[in-house]
Design a protein around this nucleic acid. Structure first.
Length: 220
DNA sequence: AGTCCGATATGCT
DNA sequence: GCATATCGGACTC
């Protein structure tokens, strides 16, 4: 039990290719990420969990997006990269939130990862969260996902791709042997959280959860 | 279940 | 300079 660092993980099963993030609409990517495993290797420690909750942000038409209307600022510049890189930023002065940029170059789409079920490197996850055992809120919330996986705002722009290089931080997503193909009935779509400033767009049902998962974020 | 509030990068005036 | 934010933990009722 001394080394749970690579628990449940020896090598990536099926790392998602760049095309996964580029070719589908952002809402479809957000749905298809459910059930996949989000992995990090941070400071040499491998951690990960099954994605159970996401939100889609469509910068072209969506007032909830930081890149609404194609807005370009230093912070949103990464939105215009080709899909498959991280967008991380500090929220409420305290929390780092992790998104994956999707779509082709110059199309500012993003998927926020809101909750995972921790399943890899649990010892490290628990230390990062100061938990003694796994709880529903160990990574059940967008700020908690980053905390549990060691993602910081300095990972902004990091490719979401497995390269296997042992000496630098990595973030990737993979399908696993137990990634079930999700039927649409297995997915709950509802309005997104914490975007009251978005006017009518706050009603868009672009928050996606695996139905009945105990690992979803706590609902406000 | 409801309320409060932290701690700061960012973007706007 | 100033208002605000893709939240979460602590505290009160």
């Amino acid at each position: 039990m001394s080394d749970l660092n690579t628990e449940n993980w020896t090598e990536p099963d099926k790392p998602l290719p760049a095309s996964f993030y580029i070719n589908a609409d952002v809402t479809e990517v957000a749905r298809q990420l459910l059930g996949c495993r989000l992995m990090t290797c941070i400071n040499g420690r491998i951690t990960g969990g099954i994605i159970v909750e996401t939100e889609a942000y469509d910068g072209l038409r969506d007032r909830a997006s930081h890149a609404f209307g194609g807005k370009r600022t230093p912070r949103t510049e990464i939105f215009y990269a080709t899909g498959g890189v991280a967008y991380t930023y500090l929220c409420y002065g305290i929390h780092t939130l992790f998104n994956i940029i999707t779509g082709p170059r110059d199309i500012p789409h993003a998927v926020l990862i809101r909750a995972i079920k921790p399943c890899t490197g649990l010892e490290t996850v628990l230390v990062r969260r100061n938990h003694t055992r796994l709880q529903r809120n160990t990574a059940g919330g967008p700020g908690l996902v980053s905390q549990a996986l060691g993602i910081t705002r300095f990972h902004n722009g990091c490719p979401v791709r497995f390269t296997g290089s042992p000496d630098q931080d990595e973030i990737w997503v993979e399908k696993t042997a137990d990634t079930l193909p999700l039927h649409s009935d297995d997915i709950v779509a509802s309005p997104r959280i914490g975007i009251d400033y978005a006017g009518d767009d706050a009603q868009l049902p672009w928050r996606y959860r695996i139905r009945n998962s105990p690992w979803n974020s706590t609902v406000r």
